[in-house]
Simulated assay, not measured.
Amino acid sequence: MIKLTQRALGTKLKIGDAASAVPIGFLTSISSPSMSQETIDVTTLDSDGEYREFIGGFKDGGEVSASGFFNPDDPGQAAVYDALENSTTEDFTIEFPAEMGAKWIFKGVVTAYQTSAELEDAISFEITIKVSGKPVLEITPTP
């Protein structure tokens, strides 16, 4: 039976290769890669009906953003901060709840890390990851 909806509870963003991936803790929001494709104008003087014509160009993996509650003791938050400081390209995985059988796998560069303290809120943090190369949506059949 196909489940049409699924709660986000249990979704994780991890940093590091499969053998040593560390979950980034205390998250409340994770976006997926925001992929896009450029177009190349191939309009000619013979184009039908005076309409422009296009073909696909380079694709861009876009960005992934995540936010949550700041915890300086969390190993995942520390790893993301270190990746920003060291300007390294890292492996990332967004794992949806197991019953969905889906996850995003991609390489990325951390381009932003921000904390925020508001009067009547918990201290929060936000990160932005620029996807490097092709993100892969891996789907595993579920029983």
Rank of each mutant, 00 (worst) to 15 (best):
T11N: 04
E126A: 15
A117Y: 04
I105R: 09
A122I: 11
D60V: 11
S31Y: 02
G62T: 04
P141C: 04
I2Q: 00
F26M: 04
Y51D: 15
D82H: 13
G108L: 11
F69S: 09
Q114T: 11
A78K: 15
E53T: 15
S116L: 13
W104H: 06
D41P: 06
G76H: 14
S20R: 09
T11Y: 03
L27K: 00
N71S: 01
G57T: 06
G57K: 06
S29P: 02
A112V: 01
G16E: 04
G101M: 06
A79C: 03
T111R: 08
A21D: 13
Q77P: 05
K103Q: 13
R7S: 03
S29I: 03
D73F: 14
I2S: 01
A117L: 12
I30F: 11
F92P: 08
T11A: 14
W104Y: 13
R52I: 03
T44I: 04
F69Q: 13
G57S: 09
A112D: 15
S132I: 14
M35H: 00
L84S: 01
T142F: 04
Q114D: 12
G108P: 06
G25C: 02
T88M: 01
M1N: 09
I123H: 13
T39Q: 11
E38D: 14
G68W: 03
G101V: 09
M100D: 01
E126C: 02
T39I: 12
G56C: 03
I30P: 03
F54T: 12
F106S: 04
T93V: 11
L4F: 10
P33A: 08
I40P: 03
S67G: 14
P135R: 06
A102E: 11
S67R: 09
T11V: 07
I24H: 02
P141G: 01
K103F: 07
L45H: 07
Q37I: 10
L13M: 05
L13A: 05
G133D: 08
N71D: 10
V110G: 01
T115E: 12
T5P: 00
I24P: 01
P143R: 08
E126N: 14
V131I: 13
T142A: 10
F125G: 00
P135A: 08
Y81E: 04
L137V: 07
S36F: 01
I15F: 08
M1L: 12
T89I: 15
G16I: 04
Q37G: 06
A8F: 12
G101A: 07
K59Q: 10
F96Y: 15
R7T: 02
S124A: 12
T43F: 07
P75Y: 07
A117N: 08
S34Q: 14
S29M: 10
